[in-house]
Design a protein around this nucleic acid. Structure first.
Length: 287
DNA sequence: ACGATTATTGCGTTCTT
DNA sequence: AAGAAAACAATAATCGT
């Protein structure tokens, strides 16, 4: 799903490779399609205000009923038949609560998953996978005690990992209502309890996207892809942040061909530091 | 919880203009 | 000569397992 070859690039007739969010020409680097905007849930459609939320604040994170629930009290002053009727009502009410809580959580998480996936320009099937993942999480009872926001983000991130689609944690968090810690807590739980088949993502998967952000020539990108493949081969990439490796490959390629990419700018698009780029660059050279 | 990678910071050096 | 970029080093934070 990561590499589809169809008709040629409108610009130079080169090969088009499609990653989850962008269709990029491998020869000239032209980004053919990169639709990131979704006109989904309404709070996202309102630009910056004091708060994007239209509803009030008292929704507590990580309490599964989100702070909104109704209890039927137990009064000692009511006796007899009336009392037993109340007890029955309480039982039924609570049962109803449990199922609707789940549903409410689902609706909430699904909409959140939707805004994240569309913000990242991820395809529909990935969104569905993320949603399914959350259902599994619910039925395995691992949601309790962790934030729903974290799960929404984690389900998206996990789906990317499983499907070898290159998105960093930071990129996901940027679109999500969760922070890094929440994502990780949920992601760890997901991995532990569900045993996801998540391999590391190959650095080469990051190259096209970063290449277009850096606005480098097509031959630089092509060379960077070769370097990325080498890194995976030779073990330079193993154990390292694939995003950083991709940045180093782009830097090296650009340097080879007298491009103007500095370690700092390469590091910047990949969300790593120049030091990281430099270290991988050195290792890449010595191979 | 551990070991390895990465971030951060600061600093003397090399390259560019 | 001045400023930017690349290099190096030490410690703190974070990641993958």
């Amino acid at each position: 799903m990561s590499t589809a070859t169809q008709t040629g690039c409108p610009e130079c007739d080169g090969r088009l490779t499609t990653d989850a969010s962008e269709t990029v020409c491998s020869d000239c680097g032209l980004v053919v399609a990169a639709d990131h905007i979704d006109h989904g849930p309404e709070w996202r459609s309102f630009p910056e205000g004091p708060s994007r939320e239209r509803t009030g604040a008292p929704l507590t994170r990580s309490r599964h009923d989100r702070g909104l629930s109704t209890e039927i009290g137990r009064s000692t002053r009511i006796k007899g038949r009336k009392r037993r009727r109340l007890a029955r009502m309480r039982v039924q009410h609570n049962r109803a609560q449990i199922s609707t809580k789940r549903e409410r959580n689902q609706v909430y998480v699904f909409t959140e998953i939707r805004t994240i996936t569309s913000g990242l320009g991820l395809p529909t099937h990935l969104r569905e996978m993320a949603s399914t993942l959350f259902r599994s999480a619910q039925s395995e009872d691992i949601v309790r005690g962790r934030s729903l926001e974290g799960f929404a983000a984690a389900c998206v991130y996990a789906s990317c990992r499983v499907q070898q689609i290159s998105r960093t944690v930071d990129e996901v968090v940027a679109e999500a209502r969760a922070d890094r810690a929440e994502l990780r807590a949920a992601y760890d739980a997901l991995n532990r309890e569900l045993g996801l088949p998540t391999g590391p993502i190959a650095p080469v998967e990051y190259v096209p996207r970063y290449a277009s952000r850096l606005d480098v020539d097509a031959d630089v990108e092509r060379r960077a892809r070769e370097y990325a493949a080498d890194c995976t081969e030779s073990g330079v990439a193993s154990g390292r942040n694939p995003s950083g490796v991709a940045a180093a490959c782009l830097y090296t390629a650009s340097r080879d061909l007298d491009g103007d990419v500095t370690q700092a700018t390469a590091a910047d698009v990949a969300g790593v530091t120049p030091v990281t780029v430099r270290n991988t660059y050195v290792d890449l050279r010595d191979e």
